[in-house]
């Protein structure tokens, strides 16, 4: 165990030699990817979405990196617009879920045993129902279409986060530093604001970000199964379900490239959430 070789100076200067520096870089790259996606969708215009028969069924080439479909539509434009739409649904679902889970989690942890029992039973009930079945039921009950998908995704994703918040608050209530604070004469409101909120906020944010991939995948899944968005709007679910008809005839790019983009986007949200955890957790933020 002699002196470890010193890492190259460049890596040192960029700060990627330790966990936190790496996490910072990863965070930046993820954010850059999402920004690019949104900007690209805004600047692309709708030209690529109209039919263009002379250029139909082209394999990926320089002009059309993702190829074109059987109507000559540019698959890159459709994929980017579709992903943006998915991000929008994810954002909406995440917002609704965050409000619901924060409210229920806090209620459950602070309002006594009976409220807690009711809320935990509700959480268990929603969690125990097979996810896709619940999604289909809600989306169907809401009349299908875009509204149906959005409502279905929004009301079915809050459970995990609500559980995390409940557990965190319960644990903090028993934490010695909170007990001490109470005996030092601090009011419950002061303790909630100064001790608990700073602990829960990062957990909450990370839980929220990790909720995105679920929401995106489920909205794509619902659309793929035909319960969701109308075929006229580009969306990843529609692209994938359309491509099913053509994949056996050799038009691989119709399925593979949008599918991979979806996978990368979803994975990046996961990476984003985990890097954020590394940075905000006092235990790992030093490494």
């Amino acid at each position: 165990m002699s002196t470890l070789a010193r890492t190259p100076a460049l890596a040192e200067r960029l700060g990627i030699t330790d966990g936190r520096g790496r996490a910072m870089w990863v965070l930046g790259l993820c954010l850059a990817y999402f920004a690019t996606l949104l900007l690209a969708a805004a600047f692309m215009g709708d030209a690529g979405l109209s039919t263009d028969f002379p250029n139909k069924k082209l394999a990926p080439c320089f002009e059309f990196p993702f190829g074109t479909d059987w109507l000559g539509r540019d698959m890159l434009v459709r994929t980017v617009k579709g992903l943006c739409r998915s991000l929008g649904i994810g954002l909406l679902a995440a917002t609704v879920s965050s409000v619901v889970s924060a409210a229920l989690g806090t209620l459950s942890a602070t309002m006594g045993k009976r409220t807690d029992a009711v809320v935990t039973t509700l959480i268990d009930l929603v969690m125990a129902t097979p996810h896709l079945v619940l999604l289909i039921l809600v989306s169907f009950a809401c009349g299908g279409g875009a509204t149906g998908v959005i409502i279905a995704v929004a009301v079915s994703h809050w459970t995990r986060l609500a559980r995390i918040i409940r557990a965190e608050i319960l644990q903090l209530k028993q934490a010695e530093f909170v007990m001490v604070s109470r005996k030092l004469g601090r009011s419950p409101w002061w303790i909630a604001r100064r001790h608990m909120l700073p602990h829960i906020a990062p957990q909450f944010t990370i839980g929220l970000i990790l909720l995105f991939p679920h929401a995106i995948l489920h909205s794509a899944g619902l659309t793929f199964l035909g319960f969701g968005l109308s075929p006229h709007n580009p969306s990843i679910g529609i692209l994938l379900s359309e491509s099913m008809r053509h994949i056996s005839t050799g038009y691989w790019w119709l399925a593979i490239l949008p599918g991979l983009s979806l996978l990368v986007t979803v994975k990046l949200f996961d990476v984003l959430g985990n890097s954020l955890r590394v940075i905000t957790d006092p235990k790992t933020s030093q490494e």
């Binding site: 002196t3 470890l4 966990g19 030093q286 490494e287």
Partner: peptide, 11 residues
Amino acid sequence: LPGNARTSGEI
């Protein structure tokens, strides 16, 4: 030891 530790000397 955690990943960000540097050691010198011998064991």
